[in-house]
Amino acid sequence: FKEKSRSVLREWYAHNPYPSPREKRELAEATGLTTTQVSNWFKNRRQRDR
C-alpha cells in the first residue's frame, strides 16, 4: 500500500470503520486498490483496534 492510499483509508476509517459495498468501490477507485484489498484493510484495521 502506498502512503497516499493509506492516508485515504485512515481518513475514511476515522469517520466510518464499516463502509458499505458502494463506499468500498469508491475507495478502491480513489486509491487504485481492489475492493478486496480495501475490505481486507478495514477488516485488519478493526481487528487491530480491538
Rank of each mutant, 00 (worst) to 15 (best):
S20L: 12
K4G: 09
R25V: 15
R22Y: 15
D49I: 04
K43G: 08
T31C: 08
R50P: 01
G32A: 11
S5D: 09
S20P: 02
A14G: 09
Q37N: 09
R45F: 05
W12G: 11
A28R: 00
N44D: 11
R45Q: 15
L33A: 06
R10K: 15
T36Y: 10
V38L: 03
D49Q: 04
G32F: 06
W41S: 03
Y18P: 02
T36Q: 13
E11N: 07
L9W: 01
K43Q: 12
Q47H: 12
N40L: 07
L33T: 05
R46P: 04
T34L: 06
L9D: 01
N40H: 13
N16Y: 02
E23S: 04
N16W: 02
W12T: 12
P17E: 06
N40S: 10
W12K: 03
K24I: 07
K4W: 07
R46D: 03
T35W: 15
A28Y: 01
S39Q: 07
T35D: 12
R45N: 13
S7D: 14
R10L: 13
W41K: 00
Q37Y: 09
V8A: 11
R46K: 04
R25E: 15
K2G: 09
N40T: 12
N16I: 05
K2E: 09
E26G: 06
Y18E: 10
L27M: 08
T35F: 15
R22D: 15
A28C: 07
K4P: 07
W41C: 01
V8R: 08
R6Q: 12
R50W: 14
E11V: 04
R50M: 10
E11H: 05
R48Y: 05
Y13I: 00
S39M: 05
R48C: 10
E26P: 00
P19T: 02
E11R: 04
R46G: 03
N16F: 05
T35N: 13
Y13C: 01
W41R: 02
P17N: 11
Y18C: 10
P21V: 12
N16A: 05
R46Q: 10
Q47I: 03
R10H: 07
R50G: 14
Y13Q: 03
Y18L: 13
S7W: 09
E26L: 04
T34D: 12
V38H: 06
T31V: 08
L27G: 01
K43M: 09
E11Q: 06
S39T: 14
V8L: 13
S39I: 01
G32K: 11
E11K: 06
F1Q: 09
E23D: 11
E29A: 04
K24S: 10
A14T: 10
E29R: 04
K4F: 09
L33D: 01
N44P: 01
R50Q: 06
F1R: 03
H15V: 14
K4S: 13
K24D: 06
Y13H: 01
W12M: 09
E11F: 01
R6E: 15
N44Q: 09
S20C: 08
S7Q: 15
R10N: 13
R22H: 12
R48F: 06
K4Q: 09
P19I: 02
F42Y: 01
E11P: 00
Y18K: 09
E26Q: 05
P19M: 00
S20T: 10
G32E: 09
A28H: 08
A14D: 09
Q37W: 06
R10A: 13
T36G: 11
S5L: 11
L27Y: 07
D49A: 06
P19Y: 00
T34Q: 06
E26D: 09
Y18N: 12
W12N: 13
R22I: 15
K24Y: 13
Q37A: 10
D49G: 03
W12S: 07
E3D: 07
E3I: 05
A30C: 12
L27I: 07
R48V: 06
G32H: 10
F42Q: 00
T31E: 06
G32T: 03
T36D: 11
R10Y: 06
K2L: 07
L27C: 07
T35L: 11
T35A: 13
A14E: 14
T31A: 12
R48G: 10
P21Y: 09
T31H: 02
S5A: 13
A28Q: 04
P21N: 10
T35R: 11
Y18G: 02
A30N: 12
N44K: 10
L27P: 00
E29I: 08
A14V: 11
E23R: 01
L33Y: 06
L33M: 12
S7C: 12
K4M: 11
G32C: 07
H15Q: 14
R50L: 15
Y18A: 08
D49N: 06
F1D: 04
E29L: 04
P17C: 08
L27S: 02
Q37C: 06
P17D: 06
P21I: 13
R45S: 11
K24N: 11
A28K: 00
Y13A: 03
D49R: 03
E23L: 00
F1S: 09
N16K: 04
T31N: 05
R22C: 15
N44E: 10
S7L: 14
A28P: 02
K2V: 07
R45C: 04
H15D: 15
R46Y: 04
A14H: 08
E29K: 02
G32Q: 13
T34C: 07
R22P: 15
E23H: 01
Y13G: 00
K4E: 15
A30S: 13
E23C: 05
N40Q: 05
R50C: 06
A14Q: 11
L27F: 04
E23P: 00
R48K: 10
R25L: 14
F42P: 01
E26I: 10
R22V: 14
R6D: 12
T36K: 15
R6G: 10
Y18R: 11
R22K: 15
T36L: 09
E23A: 05
E23N: 01
K24L: 13
S5W: 10
K4L: 08
H15Y: 11
F1W: 05
K24V: 14
E3N: 09
N44S: 08
Q47L: 07
R45L: 06
A30V: 12
R6C: 09
W41G: 01
T31G: 03
D49Y: 01
N40Y: 07
S7N: 13
P19W: 00
E26C: 05
Q47W: 13
H15W: 13
V8I: 14
E3F: 07
T31P: 01
D49H: 06
Q47T: 09
R48N: 12
R25C: 14
R25P: 00
T36V: 09
A14N: 08
P17T: 08
N16P: 00
V8H: 07
T36E: 10
R50K: 13
G32L: 07
Y18D: 12
F42L: 03
N40G: 09
K43F: 07
T35E: 14
F1Y: 15
N16R: 01
R25M: 15
S39C: 09
E11I: 03
S20G: 08
N44A: 08
H15E: 15
R45W: 09
T35V: 13
T36C: 09
S7E: 15
A30F: 09
A30M: 11
